[in-house]
Design a protein around this nucleic acid. Sequence first.
DNA 1: AGGAGAAAGTAGTCATGGACAACAATGTAG
DNA 2: CTACATTGTTGTCCATGACTACTTTCTCCT
Lengths: 198, 198
Amino acid sequence: MTTQRAYHHGNLRQALLEAAERTVRERGAGDLSLRELAREVGVSHGAPRRHFPDRQALLDALAEAGFERLGSELREALREAGPGFVGRLHAMAAAYVRFAVDDSTLLELMFAGKHREGAAALEQAAEQAFSPIMELIEQGQAERFLEPGDPERIGLVLFATVQGIASLVTGQMVRADQVGELLADSIAHFLRGSRGVA
Amino acid sequence: MTTQRAYHHGNLRQALLEAAERTVRERGAGDLSLRELAREVGVSHGAPRRHFPDRQALLDALAEAGFERLGSELREALREAGPGFVGRLHAMAAAYVRFAVDDSTLLELMFAGKHREGAAALEQAAEQAFSPIMELIEQGQAERFLEPGDPERIGLVLFATVQGIASLVTGQMVRADQVGELLADSIAHFLRGSRGVA
DNA sequence: AGGAGAAAGTAGTCATGGACAACAATGTAG
DNA sequence: CTACATTGTTGTCCATGACTACTTTCTCCT
């Protein structure tokens, strides 16, 4: 069996997604062209349509994969961190921001994709990706680092903070060398602001 | 003088920007088409090129106008709020989030535009828009609501928080009816976390 | 005035891309 | 081994952004 293409690619869908992710990383989602992708993968311009009804479907799939990877990385960060809440908080926030820096265009795409309706799978994937945040909040409450109450509410505050840092980074409002400091400051703020009002 | 078009439109640049802003608001920046704009304004498809060398230039101009309006609205919010720091903080954050909700696609465009290089005017406009945040921080420090130190550092923490809420809103991670609560919680966190560690 | 240029619009063209349809090759199940 | 479903291919249509050459209008200078 040589390298030459069979009529059936074998795993076109996956190949397209991989090529697409590369392109998005290098040139952003706006520049993504189905025809160019088809050429890269060595397939005719109509082929992708068998796997993605239109361009947006491909982008949605990409976003979904992105959420899955983000979720994995957050979980991985928690697993590698020690058991202590504060360390885990730092680890997770850092992991999130790292993702935002390394895959800024993908993260943009992930958030943009959610605007569209009929993206149930995306909603699902996003929820999965962010669940580690909620788990962490609950640990923080159990260990009295965070005030008691609806974890969702406190989680949103943390989530907003971290996502805000990510936005500032991808929007180039902060320089790369300021990120570590900003992250540390924000977490410190969050923690100090979170011990019960008493 | 009737309504019929003269050869020279008179104020094509402005007309294009206005039509573009409408379209962006209604359908997002991705759907913006120079040719369609030209048709709307009643001018030939090549005309916009006299005012914007390419599509991106139009988007940049739109983003720049967006920053100017955002800056105005933040300043306006401060002006309408009383003199007290906490009230002003709430007012400004609310104004920012309101902008993010009402003009989510524009805000996205504003942040996306900054990725591109050679956008000196944009940088400038962005800086202007965000300067009220810094002023407010300095007031907060003067009135001892905020710890002393580099205002830029503390400002970034606040900015990240507010921008994070905006991101969550535009990314549909929070429902509209949760925004007020999230905003209040976040500001409370910020304030509690900001009184000197002592 | 009036005439030279600059400014602003028009018309035509090209290449690229997304969407779609008709058809061909391959895989699969009965 | 044959019918049918999958997966690719080719060809086409249309919209768009970018570019060029040409035309109309404005303005400013003498």
